[in-house]
Structure formats: C-alpha cells, structure tokens
Measured scan of single mutants.
Amino acid sequence: QVALSRTQVCGILREELFQGDAFHQSDTHIFIIMGASGDLAKKKIYPTIWWLFRDGLLPENTFIVGYARSRLTVADIRKQSEPFFKATPEEKLKLEDFFARNSYVAGQYDDAASYQRLNSHMNALHLGSQANRLFYLALPPTVYEAVTKNIHESCMSQIGWNRIIVEKPFGRDLQSSDRLSNHISSLFREDQIYRIDHYLGKEMVQNLMVLRFANRIFGPIWNRDNIACVILTFKEPFGTEGRGGYFDEFGIIRDVMQNHLLQMLCLVAMEKPASTNSDDVRDEKVKVLKCISEVQANNVVLGQYVGNPDGEGEATKGYLDDPTVPRGSTTATFAAVVLYVENERWDGVPFILRCGKALNERKAEVRLQFHDVAGDIFHQQCKRNELVIRVQPNEAVYTKMMTKKPGMFFNPEESELDLTYGNRYKNVKLPDAYERLILDVFCGSQMHFVRSDELREAWRIFTPLLHQIELEKPKPIPYIYGSRGPTEADELMKRVGFQYEGTYKWVNPHKL
C-alpha cells in the first residue's frame, strides 16, 4: 500500500502544474464570482478556492472578487462561507491571508454602469489591468444573457486571457439551449467557454479513460460480442427537503440524466481518441451522441416518491408533501431510460440510465454486464461477469466473477477481482471535483468540460421526450421513500436483457 498525506498529494500536483506551459504561476489572475451571495458560491466555490489557495495550487498573485446585487462586505462573505471551509486552528494565518486577497463589488446584473465599476475595481488591483480574468457564473440561467453581454462589453482583460465558467442547466430543451449557446458564442470563442459538469471532475469518471485505453485486457472485450448491457446509475437517499420548488422546474431527467449520466455513457462508449488533447476527446464523445436516436417512450419509466409510513423524519414525507412543490405536480423524481448506440461496436446493446431521489442508498456507478459463458459445464450455477466502476461513495473498480467454492467439488461461487483505489492508495485525500475543474480552467484544459456541439446532441436525444411529458403530463409511478424505485423499472431492465441475480454482496474494501 502507498500512504500519501494531503501535503504529498498537493506537492505532486504542484510539480505537475508548474512543469506545464499552460499554468502561468507568476502571472496575476483575477477570479470573479458572479452571484457571490448565492448558495453555490457559499457552499462550493469559495470553499474550493480556499482549498486550492491553502494547498498552494493557485497562481501566487490571485485575487478573488465577488459580485452580486446584495450590498455585502468581505466580512459578510466570510461569515456565510467559512463554515464550509473546514479550516483547522493551525490554518488561521493562512485564512487571514486568503481573505486579504478577497474583495466585493455590489451591482445589478443588467446595468452597464455596475460592470464599469467592477472593471475599475479590477484595474485598481495590483497589475489588475493586465491580469488573466476568470469569470464564474454562479447564477440562474435567466440572467446569463445580460451578464455575459455586460462582461464582454465592460470587463474583459485587454492583455491577459479571459475565460468564463457556465453552470448547468444549459437551457431547458434543445431550442433554449441553442439560443443560449448562440448568444454566448457570439461574445466569446469556444476556447474561452467552460460549461461545467462537476461529474466530469470526479476521480473515477476520469479513471474510465485510463482503464479503457491503457489496459490491453479490456480492449478486445469492450464491444457487443461480449457486453450484454451497460447500466449507469445515480441514486440519492434523500428527497427534495424543502427545495422542491427549484427541482420541480427541471425534474430528474434535466437535473441528472441528460448531463451526468449521458457524459458517463460517452466515456464508456467512445472510441479511442487520437490523443488526450481536449478536442480529440470531445470529438469522440460527440460521435457517440450522434449514434444515439431520440428516446422512445416505451423505453422510459418515470416515478415519484411517496412517504414511507414506517419511516422516520423526512422519510415519512412524499414529494408532494414538500411545501415548495406545486400542488398535484407530476414532475418525476425517478427515471429509467434505455438508449442504444447504433454503431458497429455497440449495435443492440442497451445502455440503461437510472437516477432518482429518496432511494435506498447513495450511489453513482457504471456497471457493464457481460454475456453468459458459452457451453456451460457447471449446471447453470454460473452468474454473469460484471465490471463495476463505483464513482461514489467509496470509489472502487471491481470485476464480479466466478471462482471455485472451497471444498471437494467443482462448485462455482461469485467473488470479485478488486482493482480499488483504496487498497493501493491508503487514506489518500484526493482533490474534489470542483478543485480539479477550476484548476483545469486556470490551465486552459477543456477536456472535462462540455463543448457546444456535445451539448446540442445531448438535448436532441431528450427534448422530444421532455416535450411529450410536458404536454401529456403522465402521472409518475409512486414508489416508497427509501425503496429501490418503481418495480416497473426493474421490469424494463429485465425486458431489454439485464439479469439481476441478487445473490452477490459487494464487500467494501475500504472497511476491511
């Protein structure tokens, strides 16, 4: 086992960053958080920038500027975001240094004079007029057009580079997404736009490419001749908990499936790229999406959770019991969808996408189930092999396979070949997804960000279904809070070829 401390991990990262040409360590950078008073800024962006600063992973002359409508001070920003920093008493001095680099400007999102004030403020910072500028839009999409237009007109660096990070949702359907994309691309070049999907920053999602293309053993079996089906799962054990009003506007397909799960599907299904260059990788992902037809209604199961009468606390409440959810809402909190990649490698292999709230566990994984062994000599005792990439929690890679049961006879039983990170790298604290992705933006690497043509294809696949749901308002199937979801989803999976045995229990190697 390799035991690495946080300091050692960050030392390795620093070495990698400083050796590259793309990370300008000594240049002045300004990180501007648009929507600095909001939840995302408070819980994710400010803490992430602090962790990067604490670990010495930001360029040395980096300033952080918050911008929002609320009249706040840096002290206010500190008060609301610091509880999420997880700072230790030993880091007190470092924390003071961090907040000394912070400033805040209040202004409207659609007022040109406010942006001119913001620009004057940035120019007044040390070497601010020639600094590289990175704008993070932690804002609702309704203000994107006004904000990007004003940034472009008043706040661009004339000497350094300018980059803009856009948070999902990128529209509600193909038409609104196209409108937003066309607007942003009329102001910024594609190499300046970073559409963030934080799932692409997760260690195991990034590991998929290495697993596939750096190991000879997987190449020959990664196709329709050997793989019976692919299941991509995202499960949350909690409901909307008072935030249903926002969720109800989008629903589970827009929230998770059309982005996170579809991105994971691309990494499983794509061909080997010409290189690890950002556009070479994204070219292959677009090719996969172009091979997927629009979702067919007979390959869809929609569910909505109801309270568990035997549960406790939140578990007793259904989705419609959330006071922020519109009365009688038919918005799905669970969806199972089957897609097919219609190309030579994957023809006929079902890709089953499942996601839901208020389920029995927290889990995100990719599961490849292989065909049955031909010419069975073990009297149907063999179960199908599976390769599982567990994204969260407890990152893991393992192969479910058959071995001989101890004893006199040739009785096979299920076991696993474990390729888990935790076994080799004991207690290594890896940077989280937002840390990686923000560092990628500083480096100018777009590999783990969504390109406009990729986004367009993703919406093309799901828009007809979303429009049909909005028009017909089908009643989702009720499922109990804390269950596996509607049984109809299991029946759909069985119908397209997935075999669920229920006889195997994964042993978490992190707890051995």
Rank of each mutant, 00 (worst) to 15 (best):
D255W: 14
D255T: 14
M257R: 00
N259I: 14
H260A: 15
H260D: 13
L262M: 12
L262H: 00
Q263D: 10
Q263V: 03
M264C: 09
C266M: 09
L267W: 15
L267F: 14
V268G: 01
V268N: 01
V268A: 03
A269F: 00
M270V: 03
E271I: 00
E271F: 00
E271N: 08
K272E: 15
K272T: 09
P273S: 02
A274F: 09
T276G: 09
S278H: 14
S278A: 05
S278K: 04
D280T: 06
D280A: 14
V281T: 14
V281A: 08
R282Y: 01
R282M: 03
E284P: 01
K285E: 06
V286Q: 09
V288R: 01
V288Q: 01
C291K: 09
I292F: 01
I292P: 00
S293W: 05
A297N: 12
A297P: 04
N299D: 12
N299S: 12
V300P: 02
V301M: 02
V301G: 01
L302C: 07
G303M: 01
Q304S: 03
Q304P: 01
Y305S: 00
V306T: 13
G307Q: 07
G311R: 11
G311H: 05
E314H: 14
E314S: 08
T316Q: 14
G318R: 03
Y319C: 00
L320Q: 11
L320R: 09
D322H: 13
D322V: 08
D322T: 12
T324F: 12
V325Y: 03
V325L: 09
R327L: 10
R327W: 10
S329P: 01
T330D: 09
T330F: 07
A332E: 07
F334Y: 13
V337W: 03
V337T: 12
V341G: 02
N343H: 09
R345I: 10
W346A: 00
D347F: 09
D347Q: 15
P350N: 01
P350Q: 01
F351R: 02
I352S: 00
L353E: 01
G356M: 00
L359M: 09
N360V: 03
N360G: 13
N360M: 04
E361H: 12
R362D: 08
A364M: 07
V366M: 13
R367D: 02
R367C: 13
L368M: 11
L368R: 02
L368G: 01
Q369R: 09
Q369N: 05
Q369K: 12
Q369E: 05
F370Y: 10
F370C: 03
F370I: 04
H371A: 08
D372G: 06
A374H: 13
G375L: 13
G375F: 11
G375Q: 11
F378P: 02
R384Y: 08
N385M: 07
L387V: 14
L387D: 01
L387T: 03
V388L: 11
V388Y: 10
V391K: 13
Q392E: 13
N394E: 14
A396Q: 10
V397P: 07
Y398T: 12
T399C: 05
K400D: 05
M401C: 11
M402C: 09
M402N: 15
M402D: 06
M402R: 06
M402I: 10
K404F: 14
P406D: 14
P406E: 15
G407I: 09
G407F: 14
G407R: 04
G407M: 07
M408W: 04
F409C: 14
F409H: 06
F410D: 04
F410M: 05
N411I: 08
P412M: 11
E413D: 13
E414V: 08
E416N: 12
E416C: 13
D418F: 13
D418G: 07
D418S: 03
L419A: 07
L419E: 04
G422T: 11
G422R: 10
G422S: 14
R424Q: 15
Y425E: 15
K426D: 15
K429P: 15
L430N: 15
D432R: 14
A433P: 13
L437N: 15
I438W: 04
D440E: 07
D440R: 03
V441Q: 01
F442N: 02
F442K: 01
F442L: 13
C443Y: 08
G444W: 00
Q446F: 02
M447P: 15
H448D: 15
F449M: 05
R451W: 02
S452I: 04
E454R: 08
L455W: 05
L455M: 11
R456T: 11
R456M: 06
A458C: 14
T463H: 13
P464H: 07
H467A: 09
H467I: 06
Q468C: 09
I469A: 07
I469Y: 14
E470G: 06
E472D: 09
E472A: 08
K473E: 13
K473D: 13
K473R: 10
P474W: 11
P474R: 11
K475T: 08
I477N: 10
P478C: 05
Y479V: 01
Y481C: 08
Y481G: 04
S483L: 03
P486E: 01
T487F: 09
T487S: 12
T487N: 11
D490W: 13
L492C: 03
K494Q: 13
R495S: 10
R495D: 10
F498W: 10
Q499M: 13
G502D: 15
G502C: 13
T503E: 10
W506C: 10
W506Q: 12
W506F: 13
V507L: 06
P509N: 14
H510A: 09
K511V: 13
